[in-house]
Design a protein around this nucleic acid. Sequence first.
DNA 1: GCTCAAAGCTTGAGTTGCTGAAGCACTCGG
DNA 2: CCGAGTGCTTCAGCAACTCAAGCTTTGAGC
Lengths: 151, 151
Amino acid sequence: MGSTSTTTVPTNADLMEALAAVGAAYFQDFAAAAARHGLSSSQAKALGSVQEPVPMRALAGRLGCDASNVTGIVDRLETLGLANREAAAGDRRVKIVVITDEGREILNRIRGEMARTHQAFEAMTDEQRIALHSICGQVLPVLAGRAGGAQ
Amino acid sequence: MGSTSTTTVPTNADLMEALAAVGAAYFQDFAAAAARHGLSSSQAKALGSVQEPVPMRALAGRLGCDASNVTGIVDRLETLGLANREAAAGDRRVKIVVITDEGREILNRIRGEMARTHQAFEAMTDEQRIALHSICGQVLPVLAGRAGGAQ
DNA sequence: GCTCAAAGCTTGAGTTGCTGAAGCACTCGG
DNA sequence: CCGAGTGCTTCAGCAACTCAAGCTTTGAGC
């Protein structure tokens, strides 16, 4: 396979490998920061997905898992005092997950403590930051299967 | 196309969000492809980490989890006929995990079936591919904690 | 050669993540 | 008001994960 050369266009396999490695490393940094605050990565991910109030069912969609699974995760967040269930106005079947102030604080602290991630970003030039952000923005809708639709 | 003179440099938070979204989407594509072949994402990830024979302990390091956990994962891979344990020459405590031909075939098929990922990559220009690959290569050592040496 | 500390793997107990099926509570169209 | 459909929870069951404990092997010191 290709060696690192400025004129070599990476193959799909090259890109997959690179993206997988970066994604895995990012995730481990995230999980480690969450663990320092007593949260599993799933709980932390859920917490990050409820910065805006979200119904249980929609949360399951965001997390890409079954609705019954979300019940347990939110149970634990609620026990820890990081989120609450609130009844939805207008449809009493629906329960809306709302992050608490404490939850928001923990979330911000976790994000701030992702030392490796911040270190990696700091080392990037403005051009690289712009390029990476642009590429992610372009690639995400396809990767997430939302091509042609708005979020 | 988009880039005008208004060069907005994304903040760390912007990049974190973008990277997290792309990483999560990639992982879901991966997990879905693996599931189609009866593998959990952990099993598939392990399978991808033993393309070269690896001792159990080293595999645990690569997967970022406890050694005792790897026992169970490799148990299942072995049951499925996708990998084998072999005794290490020179140290009979060590067991080396070796992928089987069937395991290699399944792994290749999984990677080939990550449709969204391939789709996303196909839509990239040569410049973007080079930029993304280069950025990943630069960022990975820092993100994975293998940078500089002061740690 | 023996002993003992340490290393590599497995086992067991216990929690969490996750799914599918079943059930309850509620909404909405007829 | 009734029945179908929706949203959430509960339950059973497996996989992933961790920690502590246990077994075998290794290697260093005696």
